[in-house]
Nucleic acid binder design. Structure first.
Length: 297
DNA sequence: AACCCGTGGCA
DNA sequence: TTGCCAAGGGT
């Protein structure tokens, strides 16, 4: 595998070597890397889904101290997980991590399973997370297609600014084609780190990039993404905002919360009730009575 | 496939 | 200030 295809003379082995060497030199010292056991890696990956590293760090440390094994978390009320999740966002992830801990305890003897096929069956574990845990904790060989890796690959190899919205078959094929035969897990971690700290979405630091001279996007003069703009997610006034406020009250309370306290966080009664109902349906809120609510036990 | 799901920092 | 973005997953 000396090059990538007839219209691409990129030296893949040189690309591997430079990115991994850069990673060995520059990688951030993160706790789930320093101690890449399966459980810490799984916990970190769930927390890092759509949440930046700096915000995850303190929550991760407290979480691992409190629940050092899957069985420890499985034995706790799911509401404790929701509360410990704090303000990481998307609190259903806390519920899924708790459910994953229960499944690991009940079906895997308390040990995080090591294959992609087993991992992806766990709640909250999709393609990315299964590949990441199988790679980082077990040394597996998988294309780890997170937003960072996808951006690095599309820029260096395809000469485009941003990857498509969803992972395409061609993209997956390309990622597998450039996957090293050995050391794939280091390649995965290194490309992810490169995307996170150098080849960033907004202001790429090409001057600090170990493969700038191999990068097709740079060679083309950094052409901007053409096609329809990616529409951002609305926020103000959405159900997500209302759910966030409701759950924040329950998280910050010591015990059950009376209905009037929850009603005080949002004026629109229809939307408020819809959101409260959806939180109950999700298992994030336990309606003890018609007028008293708590995090689940 | 498109939409929903939190939160906070930064340019 | 406001839009964009962050180690995605579930339906």
């Amino acid at each position: 595998m000396a090059s990538l295809g007839r219209d691409r003379d990129l030296p893949v082995e040189e690309l591997h070597h430079r990115v991994v060497a850069w990673f060995d030199r520059e990688a951030r010292d993160l706790p789930w890397r320093r101690d890449p056991r399966p459980w810490p890696v799984l916990v970190s990956e769930l927390m890092l889904q759509q949440t930046p590293v700096v915000r995850v760090l303190p929550v991760f440390e407290a979480w691992m101290e409190r629940w050092p094994t899957p069985a420890d978390l499985a034995a706790a009320p799911s509401g404790d997980a929701v509360r410990a999740w704090g303000r990481l966002g998307y609190p259903r992830r806390a519920l899924r991590l708790h459910a994953a801990a229960v499944a690991i305890t009940e079906h895997h003897g308390g040990e995080v399973p090591g294959t992609y096929d087993e991992l992806i069956e766990l709640p909250g574990v999709g393609d990315y997370t299964a590949a990441a845990v199988a790679s980082f904790a077990f040394g597996g060989r998988h294309a780890v297609l997170d937003t960072n890796v996808r951006r690095v690959l599309v820029r260096v190899l395809e000469g485009e600014q941003y990857p498509a919205k969803g992972v395409t078959a061609a993209e997956r094929r390309l990622a597998n084609d450039v996957l090293p035969v050995t050391g794939a897990e280091r390649w995965a971690a290194a490309t992810m780190e490169l995307g996170a700290v150098v080849c960033t979405a907004r202001s790429p630091r090409c001057g600090a990039c170990p493969v700038a001279d191999l990068c097709r996007w740079r060679a083309l003069g950094h052409p901007e993404h053409d096609g329809p703009a990616r529409r951002g997610q609305p926020w103000a006034g959405t159900d997500r905002q209302v759910r966030g406020r409701l759950l924040a009250v329950l998280r910050d309370a010591d015990g059950p919360v009376p209905r009037p306290v929850l009603e005080s966080v949002w004026d629109d009664a229809v939307q408020r009730e819809r959101c409260l109902d959806s939180l109950v349906a999700d298992g994030l809120v336990d309606p003890l009575t018609d007028d008293l609510f708590a995090l689940p036990t």
